[in-house]
Simulated scan of single mutants.
Amino acid sequence: MRVVLKPGKDKLLRRGYPWVFANQIHRVEGRPRTGDVVEIAAADGTLYGLGFYHERSQIAVRFLTPDPEATIDAAFFRQRLERALALRETAFGDSTHYRLVFSESDGLPGTIIDRYGEVLTWTCLCYGMEQRRDLILDLLEELLQPRAIVERNDNSLREKDGLPQQRGILRGRYDGPVEIVEDGVRFRVDVLEGLKTGFFLDQRLHRPVVARLARDRRVLDVFSADGGFGLMAAARGAAHVHLLDISEPAMQRARENARLNGLDLSRLTFDVANALDRLGELVAQGATYDLIVLDPPAFAKSKRHLDDARRAYQRINISALRLLPPGGLLATASCSQALDEDEFLKIIHYSARRVGCGLRLLYRGTQPPDHPVLEAMPETHYLKFFLFQKMADEVPPVRQ
């Protein structure tokens, strides 16, 4: 079975881009069904390799291997998993919490596998991979002997591949939250009920950077979730930490994590509110902080949401800069893949002009090694992180 591309529609594939879209296909030879492995060929017959086929999705083929003779079996997937595991063990040493598989970047299309010690989570957006789920779970049990494998497929993107949303325990026994230790701070992670797969693993390199600057500072952690940034700042000697999130369950987990670390609760404020509204209220009240962290959810799920996302990012960054005195620190992030780094920087610079301040860049970051970026695939690069210092220099504000 073979998918033949239209003339000139193989340019992205030649550059290493791993998706073939339906409008690139000239014809389909044979009668493949959704989830079958097909050959991918250029109009002149050049074979590019094998991929998973989907009859109805806009992403018609997800690339698997350049070897057209490869057998997509247990040995194939074992090799991919072993390679992914080796990278994480090299990058993180004895740490056992990380993203074990990051979809196309690890050669396993549409598949996310997170590890929290003896518990794994499974998330899949690709029909072909979902069909082979039990095979891959068998391999994971052989390689890692997990106590439990939990399904976190409560993601609307699954519907694009004709897959239902669902959540539950796939293998083993899950008795409740798993404890992890990050830079000496303990967190209890609920992989079944928590946000995403239980913890924001992609910010692991940035939390210690912020925490080292938090000593004796008044910290505001916005979109705090289970308290990753804020509690690490408190553990490193912040004078006071204000955690702000709209989720009451997340805030309850943050309280439990604070107690787990023996933190002084009198130095912590747990605030359940809409962050965009609360930031404006804090500005109106004349509140001030020395260090503010903005780690919002993806405001732009796709390019059609970009205008609304820009306004939301502007709103929170303008408010945060107004809450900081000269010399204050702003750690600001975006996990919207549709918003590239240059555009995000423009938003931050615009926000500074609106406030009438200068900025000094202290640190810039992106995804850690367990979220590798496939150079030919922009979709795998999503996280932008900047740490700025607000400068006293006055500049003319931008007028609306």
Rank of each mutant, 00 (worst) to 15 (best):
L137W: 12
F229V: 08
G176P: 12
G30P: 14
Y174L: 05
L265G: 11
K160H: 14
S319T: 15
V210F: 02
E343P: 02
Q165V: 15
G45P: 05
L137H: 14
Y98I: 12
T366L: 09
A250S: 13
P7M: 04
Q79N: 01
C126I: 13
V3S: 01
P372F: 06
L135M: 10
D67S: 04
M251F: 02
M251V: 01
L279N: 04
A211P: 07
A43W: 08
F270N: 00
K390W: 08
D190R: 08
S103E: 05
S351A: 15
E159S: 15
R31A: 14
P372M: 07
L135R: 02
R15N: 10
A338R: 04
R14I: 10
L279C: 09
L282C: 06
P146V: 08
L108P: 06
R62Q: 09
L260M: 10
D134F: 02
R215T: 15
R311M: 05
D393G: 07
S351I: 08
A86W: 07
V3Y: 03
L260W: 07
F229T: 07
F229I: 10
G49S: 07
E82D: 02
L213E: 01
D226I: 15
I136P: 01
R2A: 14
R255L: 09
L374Y: 14
L231N: 13
R99L: 06
A298R: 03
